[in-house]
């Protein structure tokens, strides 16, 4: 079991290590800040999807190991999303016109909402917080569903002409949401409500 967790940890950190190596190796092209931002954002989104895979996987396989790495994967999604935001501020908009960016540009607003929704989940992910929150922990953590939807909208809104990649991710996200509705009823998707 610790070995499995270690493997998942390494697997989730590997893309970050590759990114850092690419950055130091000058392999991010002539506009490396933009590339770095893009890759961090995609990693955050992918981690979110992988996190949401854990519950269905544990049900299919009947094994609890997936649930035990779920928190770690969720925290990786949060980690990448925070780095993505910082990289965006530093390299893409250069800390200028922040008010306009975060109020007037829908894709930035959506991305920010997704990240804000993830904040309480990251904060309450510890065992102590789980105990303290008791029965309300689970409905709170359903905020991951709207976070996923906003993250996807954030992604889609930046498309200029080809939406193929976004549609592929949409299919995966929809499958992940639909299996939950199928197994547990649509109420399991509603955050902040006691089941």
């Amino acid at each position: 079991m610790p070995l499995f967790r270690l493997l998942v940890f390494a697997g989730a950190l590997l893309p970050f290590a590759l990114l850092v190596m690419d950055a130091f190796g000058g392999r991010l092209g002539p506009d490396p800040g933009e590339r770095l931002t893009e890759r961090l954002g995609l990693l955050a989104f992918q981690c979110l999807l992988v996190t949401l895979f854990m519950t269905p996987l544990s049900r299919w396989t009947g094994s609890p190991v997936w649930i035990r790495v779920r928190r770690m994967l969720g925290l990786f999604a949060f980690f990448y999303a925070v780095l993505h935001l910082l990289a965006f501020l530093q390299f893409v908009i250069g800390w200028e016109d922040l008010w306009v960016a975060f109020t007037k540009r829908p894709y930035i607003v959506f991305g920010t909402i997704a990240l804000l929704l993830m904040c309480p989940l990251a904060i309450t992910s510890t065992r102590g917080m789980m105990r303290r929150l008791g029965r309300s922990w689970k409905p709170l953590h359903r905020l991951i569903y709207p976070a996923l939807v906003f993250a996807w909208l954030h992604f889609l809104w930046q498309a200029r002409s080809d939406v193929g990649e976004m549609m592929a991710y949409a299919v995966i996200a929809i499958v992940l949401l639909v299996v939950r509705v199928y197994w547990f009823g649509w109420r399991t998707l509603v955050p902040l409500r006691r089941a």
């Binding site: 991010l28 002539p30 506009d31 800040g33 770095l36």
Partner: peptide, 10 residues
């Protein structure tokens, strides 16, 4: 208002 003149670096 601004642009990144390429190549840029981190």
């Amino acid at each position: 208002k601004r642009e990144r003149r390429l190549p840029s670096s981190l």
